[in-house]
């Protein structure tokens, strides 16, 4: 089975956000594979370990994203592709670039994350499926060994569980709970250095201006107001509980 995983490099979720010169500062920030994409990488490697095949990881991003792809190779993916172009500014353009690359590849399955923890738009993977003309299911928590040209997946829909049968090739996005991603092993890290790593630009993919230019643009960026620490209640616990309910009614007026 030939599996492609689309992934994004993101800030670690414990990072604080600092705005400098109208942009989010990357100084000293720890970068990781987007946690939801990491589930997708792990699932692809498990499929390969069970029934053979090949796993290719693909990312659209700046040079630093190469590190995330190398981590995926160290986990067990076979080859990596990094598409870099500053003009690819929004989800429309990024999905067009991925589609331009993938349309020339043969694959049975594409996996990605449910959303990225930075932009949180959750668009690229689903758009990609539509652009490639293949079915998709988002937010899966279970992928049953695909075979016979189809796969059975379970989807988390706001706590409800949906089971779907989908013919391949198809695209699925991973939700938390799908698996527990492994850490790269030392031999894995050594082997990763020798695995094929391809770099492409939008021009290499023959992307025309119409597909390159974003359909949305940012006009401002800001931090939320800092919350102030409030009142720590005093007295014995029954008194505190009574006081809290009273304050919710009289001071906060939320009851």
């Amino acid at each position: 089975m030939k599996v492609y995983v689309v992934l994004k490099q993101t800030f670690d979720t414990e990072e604080k956000i600092v705005i400098r010169d109208g942009a989010v500062s990357e100084d000293g920030v720890k970068f990781v594979i987007n946690p939801y994409d990491e589930y997708a990488v792990e699932e692809a490697i498990r499929l390969k370990e069970r029934s053979g095949g090949q796993v290719t990881v693909v990312s659209v991003g700046p040079d630093r994203a190469a590190e995330a792809l190398r981590t995926a190779l160290a986990m067990g993916a076979d080859e990596a592709v990094l598409i870099s172009d500053d003009r690819l500014s929004d989800e429309y353009a990024v999905s067009e670039a991925l589609a331009a690359f993938l349309t020339d590849q043969a694959f049975d399955l594409i996996l990605g994350g449910n959303f990225s923890v930075d932009n949180g738009a959750g668009q690229v993977a689903v758009r990609l499926a539509e652009l490639l003309g293949i079915p998709h299911v988002s937010s899966i928590v279970k992928l049953e060994a695909p075979g016979g040209g189809s796969a059975v997946v379970q989807r988390d829909a706001e706590g409800d569980l949906e089971t779907l049968d989908v013919s391949l090739p198809a695209l699925f996005t991973a939700q938390q709970g799908l698996n527990e991603p492994r850490y790269p092993s030392l031999p894995g890290i050594m082997k990763a250095k020798k695995k094929p790593f391809k770099r492409l630009t939008a021009d290499d993919l023959g992307l025309t201006a119409d597909r390159l230019e974003g359909r949305t643009a940012r006009t401002s960026l800001s931090l939320p107001p800092v919350r102030q620490a409030g009142l720590i209640l005093q007295g014995d616990l029954p008194q505190q509980a009574a006081k809290l309910v009273e304050l919710l009614r009289t001071q906060s007026k939320v009851l």
């Binding site: 956000i17 930075d118 949180g120 949305t216 006009t219 960026l221 931090l223 939320p224």
Partner: peptide
């Protein structure tokens, strides 16, 4: 929101 609400952006459509 960006980063789940650690920052916020304003955006407009083009076309």
């Amino acid at each position: 929101p960006l980063y789940a609400g650690k920052a916020f952006e304003k955006k407009v459509f083009r076309g």
